[in-house]
């Protein structure tokens, strides 16, 4: 699994024109990775050649279409800004797939996405649907601003097996409120939760699941240097003391493995 150079097959802004956040869908020709990757795993992607920025950026895999690897990302800083300028036909360096993905051995999965948590969960939903599972997909956003096109395309994509519900804090799309407000109804049906999003949201989801005795898998982010378990930079506080490596024991962990107080 050496580093590879992958051609950019397409690269489009998918968030609403003019609105923040700016979200992009990057499609890379990377059959070496698409053959192996499982939902929840990630890749390390060099956003530009040269020494600054130095480190590769971790991105979850958003989906696989044939030999194409999809990455859905939000403009967050210098690295993602440089990445957003990369044109179709150019090549990017990356390595992966890395880390531990979702355990898809679940019967009635409820997927809970906060913001960019959509990225890995769409891949998980697609894989679960392919296995013949019915999926409840809950998505929470601060507001509809910027996301309306993306949400429409998700709803269109969802089809009959994936039951898509949306909550926005400002009520501009879907139900008004936090995504956790959608959970009680979904959990009346579901028996397992797969979640990805900001840490406060994941903490709330984990608490709700713990109260109801529902197994909960969370995908966590931490700053990463190597992505392969060597630098020990990506420490996630572990329940019972010490740390787990987000890149190795994660990014998907059982919520019970995590010390939410110290996170």
């Amino acid at each position: 699994m050496a580093t590879l150079r992958a051609e950019v097959a397409s690269h489009d802004r998918v968030s609403d024109p003019g609105a923040a956040p700016e979200i992009f869908l990057l499609r890379l020709r990377a059959p070496e990775i698409t053959q192996k990757v499982r939902p929840g795993q990630f890749v390390m992607l060099k956003v530009a050649a040269g020494l600054d920025p130095l480190l590769a950026r971790p991105f979850s895999v958003h989906g696989v279409e044939g030999g194409d690897l999809l990455i859905l990302y939000r403009l967050a800083g210098k690295g993602t800004r440089l990445l957003s300028q990369v044109k179709e036909g150019q090549e990017l360096t990356l390595w992966g797939p890395l880390g531990r993905g979702f355990d898809l051995n679940v019967k009635k999965p409820v997927l809970v996405a906060g913001g960019m948590g959509l990225a890995p969960l769409r891949f998980a939903a697609a894989a679960l649907a392919k296995q013949g599972r019915e999926v409840s997909f809950l998505c929470g956003l601060p507001g509809g601003d910027g996301f309306s096109e993306l949400c429409e395309s998700l709803e269109r994509w969802a089809g009959s097996q994936v039951n898509f519900s949306l909550a926005t804090e400002d009520g501009s799309l879907g139900v008004m409120g936090l995504v956790t407000a959608l959970m009680p109804e979904a959990l009346a049906w579901g028996d397992a939760v797969l979640a990805c999003g900001p840490i406060p949201m994941l903490g709330a989801v984990a608490r709700l699941c713990a109260e109801r005795g529902v197994p909960c898998q969370v995908s966590l982010e931490a700053p990463m240097a190597c992505g392969v378990g060597a630098c020990l930079g990506c420490a996630i506080p572990a329940a019972g003391g010490g740390y787990l490596r987000a890149c190795q024991e994660g990014p998907v962990m059982d919520a019970a493995q995590v010390d939410w107080e110290r996170l």
Binding site: L51, D52, P53, L54, L55, A222, P223, M224, A225, C231, L232, G233, C234, A235, I236, P237, G241, G242, Y243, R262
Partner: peptide
């Protein structure tokens, strides 16, 4: 166990 996170930060060329 090591230090509390965040443990790493990219800087210019380092």
């Amino acid at each position: 166990a090591g230090n509390a996170p965040p443990r790493i930060r990219e800087t210019a060329c380092g």
